[in-house]
Amino acid sequence: MTSPARPLRADARRNREALLTAAGDLLGERGDDVQIEEIAARAGVGVGTLYRHFADKDALVAAIVGRRFAAATDLARAAEELPDADAAFTALLDGYLESVAGDSAFRRALLGPEEPRWEAISAEKTAFREVVSRIVERAVRESVLREDFGADDFILVTRGAMANMGENEDWRRHVRLQLEGVRPRPSAPAPSA
């Protein structure tokens, strides 16, 4: 579950955030090999506290991903407000990728061999996708993107970039190369008679 059913007390909220931060750090560093006990210790709480907030490690990962999607949705809504379709699409793409560049736990969850359990974060994922769809549709309508580009293609482009994120900044070049392929091609001049 990404958010509790009722408001948490201040200390419980701090514990939950500490667990999410510790889990994000450890999972980002080492992947699924991290044990629940290590996460609790890094957060400075007991294992029982962890289990009061999250049923299992999958629920903890879902919360990390849900938190990132919620932040990405805020970013996407801000991009959507830009008056220029190209600026809106670029702000969405660059902002989203910049935000996940430092979040290897999120990237591992999306790109890992196991299909993530999305039911716990379906609202966050749906909200993000809806805003992305509107930005992409506007960019297509205004000839910023090819007419066959869709929200699913946005996901493919971003996942490709995430797969190339590492110590260097090569992922930025990867994105620019991909964007050259999704921009409309200029019409060829008519042959002279």
Rank of each mutant, 00 (worst) to 15 (best):
E37H: 11
T49Q: 07
A123G: 13
P186N: 01
E124R: 11
F149E: 00
W171Y: 15
S3G: 13
E137V: 09
A190S: 15
R138H: 02
P4S: 14
E119V: 04
L82R: 10
R6Q: 06
R146K: 10
R138V: 00
A151T: 13
R173C: 10
N15R: 08
R176P: 13
K125R: 14
F106R: 03
R108E: 00
D58Y: 04
V61G: 05
G95D: 01
E29A: 15
G66T: 01
M1P: 11
N168M: 07
D103S: 10
E142C: 13
P7R: 14
W118A: 06
L8P: 08
R16N: 07
V100N: 08
S122Q: 14
I155Y: 11
E80R: 13
R129P: 00
V136G: 00
D170E: 13
A70E: 08
G48T: 14
A76Q: 00
A22P: 11
I39D: 04
G112V: 09
R129Q: 10
A12K: 12
A163R: 08
H174S: 11
A18P: 09
E37V: 15
V157S: 04
D32M: 14
Y96K: 04
G44V: 10
E130K: 14
T126Q: 11
F154G: 02
A78I: 03
R159M: 08
L20P: 08
G46T: 13
G66N: 01
A85R: 07
L179Y: 01
A62W: 01
E167C: 12
M1W: 03
F154K: 05
P191E: 10
F89M: 10
V175K: 05
G112T: 09
L156F: 07
G28A: 04
D148Q: 10
I155W: 11
E119Q: 07
Q178H: 03
R9I: 00
V34R: 01
D84V: 02
M165A: 06
L19T: 05
A79P: 01
A101F: 12
G24N: 02
L110Q: 13
R13P: 04
G95K: 05
E167A: 15
R146P: 05
V61S: 06
L20V: 08
D152Y: 04
V45L: 02
P4G: 15
L93S: 05
L50V: 10
H174D: 06
V45W: 02
L50A: 03
R183S: 06
R14T: 09
A91G: 02
I135G: 06
L82T: 08
